[in-house]
Design a protein around this nucleic acid. Structure first.
Length: 725
RNA sequence: GCCAAAGUGGCGGAAUUGGUAGACGCGCACGACUCAAAAUCGUGUUCCUUCGGGAGUGAGGGUUCGAUUCCCUCCUUUGGUACCA
């Protein structure tokens, strides 16, 4: 607060009157609440916001120095959404005349002469003030419709074009033409100025809008506009544009901006798509705000009064007024006469943004962490996390660390040096279909006959696709008197592969697998499933393979009767080759976080050592160390059986030795016109000319060439031979 | 819609720099052991085929002696989309 990083503002929330609570966007489906199916409307509430926009530019620049994937950086760049352009003021002509002007933001001031209409966000205050008597009914109807739609709906259904003329006009600053002002949900109140100038010949959305409502379209780019599709080019030559005529659009942007600034009717501006972060939640679990209100003005609590802890209660229900559960604790809220606490709590993002700093010095009772510890541990070296955190958590955490850096608490200003996005384990979700406005559920095959909203249902009360309807009624109180429309006597659920998540009720608990196969098998199987970065559905079909591998590895150390015993004999070159090939592959793959191929390599190694009947200590001992990160329990057990008293986790990782891997010859695939027809073995140091002679003399080439000389012979040493006929 | 990622046998996946597509595992088939089963071991397993060969990495095109890999267009699936955490 002292640094103007946190401020109070009125922002929109999803308000459900029937539940008496505020809902998250994903708790709202088609304008009704997930629980109960009650109507949800937008409501303004006074909430805390964090001024993350003030850091937009630094968050953008900071991306250059951290090791995140390109796609992750791209997502953050787009989210921050820096765009340069200009604000332009238009005079407004309306019946009441109370609104003298409107301001729009545009990245394309060069297209100012192509403006055919203006669009104002439905939430914009001026809509009510400029609407003419003739248009009043229609506008009111439209605003009611918009209120029922979530922002996600509005962005998702861009193809659905809606809007309404307000009856007012803007005056073009140069031509003084009257431009109709419309309102439409495709203009978002939260971005820019909440109003745009529409240039249909250059902007796809404006173009579709103009076509839909049959508005005239001014062409300012000559033959570069075909009348069918908008052309967002920067390179076209301007036409119908007064003093900009003949200029390339790219150059005209600056010329127009200069002119607007000279005339005082516009200004260059950098705009960010990113909005300030809404930081209030009407929930119990979360950090309470360390502020006190006196005469409705917030004051930060004194440092010696901190931390403000979450009060204990058994009443987690919402207050009913839109405030969170803390509002029920009257003694806590009104803790002293004339003073009042905030009933909101912070989102989970708050703690997630900086908890790792506390981990560096968890017992410190003077500060969140001592400077010495912070400097010692420094940034997080590798952060493995899902890409779903790309824009929320990861940006908040970066913001938080920058703020703490600016306040002098940290020597670094980026929290994570390197980020790896592990894939999500996806689950197989099940859905039931609630008939809109009822507590009646229709089986998946019949849902097209009704207007329904899909709801997630716990996979544990569904057998295959068939819902256990009794269990469903018991599952949650609001379903106790649910009615079902069955097909062939059964209730069948819909299904989808989605990320595994509590909120989607598709979580599978791994305890049963650990019970049956052990934690080592589960751990290795998860690695074996596929690349770390890739999402994959949870499926235990292949787990037997990993289990068998661990048994076979164990068997290398045991004789047929199960008695432990390793040989002290010297290893053969074959055995050494197997060991060092494995060590090399494992070492390189660990560096690349390619754990699935490590597991494959271990399997190959065990297969080969089993057929070599190798039980030599000099081969097996290094393998136990290499296996330890993958199957720690078995590795520790074998390590101790090998006579060690220290733990294997402390052992030095074995290094591979290229000397055991050298080969002198390569089996060259002989391809003819790109198709492999045979293989021939040649020494690696054999000159190309000799290889060519021998290949051309071979039976297989003679067969395909039918005596004709080849057009070309390509020899890649150590790789392949290709004969082009 | 927008932003991002991914599409390879019946299934999970491999192919590190453009160089033998399908490693490794599951599943399946057959065989050994067994009274039998389980477990274990062995062999085979991309598809089509007139058994010569042909096709083949989501679809279509391109570059190249050679493309899962590079380029263009399209399709599908998944994640995010600001109060799920």
């Amino acid at each position: 607060m002292q640094y103007r990083l946190a401020y109070l503002a009125y922002t929109d929330v999803n308000w459900c009157e029937a539940l008496g609570t505020v809902l998250a966007n994903d708790e709202v489906i088609n304008g009704v609440s997930y629980r109960g199916g009650f109507p949800v409307v937008k409501k303004q509430m006074r909430q805390w916001s964090l001024r993350i926009t003030e850091y937009a530019d630094r968050l953008l620049k900071g991306l250059e120095e951290i090791d995140f994937s390109d796609s992750m950086k791209e997502i953050q760049r787009n989210w921050i959404g820096k765009s340069t352009g200009a604000r332009i003021d238009f005079k407004v002509k309306s019946e009441k005349g109370t609104v003298p002007s409107m301001t729009v933001f545009t990245t394309r001031p060069d297209t100012l002469f192509g403006v055919d209409f203006m669009v104002v966000a439905p939430e914009h205050e001026m809509v009510k003030e400029i609407t003419s008597t003739a248009q009043q009914d229609e506008v009111t109807k439209y605003l009611t419709y918009v209120e029922s739609r979530s922002e996600v709906d509005r962005m998702a259904e861009v193809k659905k074009i809606t809007g309404c003329f307000t009856g007012a006009y803007a005056i073009h600053p140069f031509t003084h033409k009257e431009i109709p002002i419309w309102t439409s949900e495709y203009v978002l109140a939260g971005y820019g100025t909440g109003a745009i100038m529409a240039v249909p010949c250059g902007d796809e959305r404006d173009h579709k809008f103009a076509k839909f409502f049959k508005l005239p379209i001014t062409n300012i780019i000559g033959k570069n506009y075909n009348g069918e599709e908008a052309n967002p080019s920067y390179d076209a030559i301007l036409d119908n544009s007064d003093f900009l005529n003949g200029m390339v659009m790219r150059d005209a942007i600056g010329v127009m901006a200069d002119r607007l600034e000279q005339l005082g009717i516009g200004k260059r501006q950098v705009n960010y798509k990113m909005r300030d972060a809404g930081w209030s939640r009407q929930r119990y679990w979360g950090e309470p705000f360390p502020v006190v209100f006196r005469d409705d003005m917030p004051y930060a609590m004194a440092e010696q009064e901190l931390p403000l802890e979450l009060p204990t209660t058994n009443n987690f229900k919402p207050s009913g007024s839109g405030e969170g559960p803390l509002a029920n604790l009257k003694d806590w809220i009104h803790f002293s006469p004339g003073e009042k606490r905030d009933s909101n709590t912070m989102p989970t993002h708050a703690g997630a943004a900086w908890y790792f700093l506390r981990y560096m010095d968890p017992h410190n009772d003077k500060a969140f962490a001592g400077r010495e510890a912070l400097d010692y541990w420094n940034q997080v070296d590798i952060y493995i996390g899902g890409s779903e955190h790309a824009v929320a958590h990861l940006l908040y955490s970066r913001l938080w660390v920058k703020v703490l850096h600016d306040l002098g608490y940290l020597s670094f200003d980026e929290p994570f040096k390197k980020l790896i996005n592990q894939g999500k384990i996806t689950g197989d979700s099940r859905f039931v279909y609630r008939i809109r406005g009822t507590n009646q559920f229709v089986s998946a095959g019949l849902r097209d006959k009704y207007e329904t909203d899909p709801l997630h249902v716990d996979v544990n009360i569904v057998n295959g696709l068939e819902l256990d309807t009794d269990a469903f009624r018991k599952w949650r109180p609001d379903f106790a008197d649910a009615q079902f429309v069955l097909e062939e006597g059964k209730y069948l659920c819909g299904s989808a592969i989605e990320k595994m998540s509590k909120s989607k009720y598709n979580v599978v608990n791994p305890d049963d697998i650990i019970e049956k196969y052990g934690a080592d098998t589960l751990r290795m199987y998860e690695m074996f499933l596929g690349p770390l970065e890739q999402s994959k559905p949870w499926n235990t079909n292949g787990i037997d393979g990993v289990y068998k591998f661990l048994k076979r590895f164990w068997n290398l150390f045991h004789d047929a009767s199960g008695k432990f015993g390793v040989s002290a004999d010297a290893p053969t070159p074959d055995e050494l080759r197997v060991l060092h090939k494995t060590l090399k592959k494992i070492s390189l793959d660990i560096e690349n976080y390619s754990f699935n191929t490590c597991v494959s390599e271990f399997m190959i190694c065990v297969n080969e050592l089993t057929s070599l009947k190798c039980n030599k200590r000099s081969i097996l001992e290094p393998l136990v160390i290499a296996l330890a990160p993958f199957a720690p329990h078995i590795a520790e057990e074998l390590w101790s059986m090998l006579g060690h008293t220290e733990m294997v986790v402390g052992a030095r990782f074995p290094e591979y030795d290229e000397r055991h891997l050298q080969v002198s010859a390569h089996a060259y695939p002989i391809s003819i016109n790109g198709k492999v027809r045979a293989t021939m073995e040649f020494a690696l140091d054999m000159p190309k000319e000799d290889i060519e002679k021998m290949v051309l003399a071979s039976e297989i080439v003679k067969k395909w060439s039918e005596g004709k000389p080849p057009k070309k012979v390509i020899i890649v040493p150590g790789k392949i031979v290709n004969v082009v006929l």
